[in-house]
């Protein structure tokens, strides 16, 4: 178990260190950490820390948050196709964030600023709707009902988003369109700090969950009979996953398919035990989105594509494969 954790940890750290080296100007890692030159004279270090690292760290944070949220939704709803996107949770978060951006909401609560807060409200609202629908229709694990509810909700919330964009003024609309494609165009540390607060809270919740998720994924009633406090675990899981989705979306936009691709790839390597799947998905999710963003930055250089386009091109076929594999 420790070996697996370390391997995934090394992968994530490696991605964080190596990805900023790649770009229009080539820089060397040795030069970046060359302490003999002052920072002001060290162009390599400036490019690394100022221009590229914030973007890479955002990718890491967004990738981890969405991946772990995917793991939690899949276990909780006993449905391998559940994820922040397929459930409409990302769409809810996106709507919240768009509203906050368009109407220049400027407040903060417990150190969390308006956009992440609005994004979290949107994600938990959307999740509440889908969850209530699926529970009312007998046990809530029917794939069809869940996915249809998610698709419908995504379409509905998308229409509201377009309405807001339509009535907003042109510059704001341009900004939000870029953002909605899932763009990691982050060039400062402040937004990362803002997303880090809810993300940390979410991960504090996730840490308590792995074993309970194992048992709940086999059946909530038998989990209760084995001593899991199912109601409490479900609450922690749903709130934490919504927080993580909200924080990720507020930072990088609704980057699609990460929450479904990463958990399944990780399970192929680690097996189903959530004590492995959960931390490994957090780390691999970070590395995965850093990698996708690297492709987005370099594929059509000097044009930087929104990373959401890359994840969708990888994730779409993957999702269809999953769907068919399950029969």
């Amino acid at each position: 178990m420790i070996v697996t954790w370390s391997a995934f940890g090394a992968l994530a750290v490696g991605a964080c260190l190596l990805a900023p080296l790649v770009g229009s100007t080539t820089i060397r890692l040795a030069a970046v950490f060359d302490r003999s030159r002052p920072f002001a004279d060290n162009i390599d270090a400036q490019i690394f820390f100022v221009a590229r690292l914030p973007r890479v760290l955002s990718a890491a944070l967004v990738g981890s948050g969405l991946s772990v949220a995917g793991v939690v939704f899949q276990a909780l709803l006993r449905n391998p196709l559940a994820s922040p996107d397929t459930l409409g949770v990302s769409a809810g978060a996106a709507l919240g964030a768009i509203l906050a951006i368009t109407f220049h909401l400027d407040f903060s609560l417990l150190g969390v600023s308006a956009v992440p807060l609005a994004s979290f409200s949107g994600s938990i609202g959307a999740l509440g709707i889908v969850y209530a629908l699926s529970v009312v229709r007998r046990r809530g694990t029917s794939t069809t009902v869940l996915l249809l509810a998610g698709v419908t909700l995504t379409a509905l919330l998308g229409a509201v988003v377009r309405f807001v964009q339509y009535v907003a003024d042109f510059t704001e609309t341009f900004q939000t369109v870029r953002w909605l494609m899932g763009s990691l165009d982050v060039a400062a540390y402040a937004p990362i700090g803002a997303a880090l607060v809810p993300m940390t809270a979410a991960f504090a919740g996730f840490v308590t969950l792995p074993r309970a998720l194992d048992l709940i994924s086999v059946g909530s009633e038998s989990a209760a009979a084995r001593g899991v406090n199912v109601t409490q675990s479900e609450r922690v899981a749903l709130v934490s996953a919504s927080l993580a989705t909200g924080a990720a979306v507020s930072l990088g936009g609704p980057v699609s398919f990460v929450g479904i691709v990463v958990p399944h790839l990780v399970r192929l390597i680690t097996g189903a035990d959530h004590r492995l799947v959960l931390p490994a998905s957090a780390l691999f999710g970070a590395a995965f989105l850093i990698g996708c963003d690297l492709i987005a930055r370099t594929a059509l250089a000097p044009v930087e594509l929104p990373v959401g386009i890359v994840t969708a091109i990888i994730g779409g076929p993957f999702f269809l494969w999953l769907l068919f594999r399950r029969g």
């Binding site: 899949q74 276990a75 006993r78 449905n79 391998p80 074993r211 194992d214 048992l215 994924s217 086999v218 059946g219 038998s222 084995r226 001593g227 899991v228 399970r267 097996g271 189903a272 035990d273």
Partner: peptide, 19 residues
């Protein structure tokens, strides 16, 4: 009992140790 994910038989039995 339906397992959503690919748990092994030993995994399932070990879940009994939870309490």
């Amino acid at each position: 009992t339906h397992a959503t994910f690919d748990f092994s038989v030993l995994d399932i039995v070990l879940m009994g140790r939870y309490p």
